[in-house]
Amino acid sequence: MQLFPCPFCGPREESEFHYGGEAGNLRPDGGDVTAERWAGYLHMRDNPKGPTREIWVHLTCGEFFAMSRDSVNHKVSGSSVLGEAEHGA
């Protein structure tokens, strides 16, 4: 069982977490968004092989956060509370 670092609870078992998507995939704003742009937001993914930054939720505390991870060797390099980059502020 791998341990993931929740920024609020510390290291916890991976089965307590749920994947929420790639970080930085911001919802399009405004009235005249094209179908392609919506499809890009809803469906298209970078799906990188190697280092990746993702949104996760720790199901036991209910908090969303960002985690940096390697998709090949599964090593976690860190996690942080969501910042402006993920909120699109």
């Binding site: 991976e14 749920h18 994947y19 799906n47 092989k49 190697g50 990746t52 993702e54 998709s71 090949v72 060797n73 599964h74």
Partner: peptide
Amino acid sequence: LDRIPSYG
């Protein structure tokens, strides 16, 4: 499926 995106 494993619930973690992976190439391993």
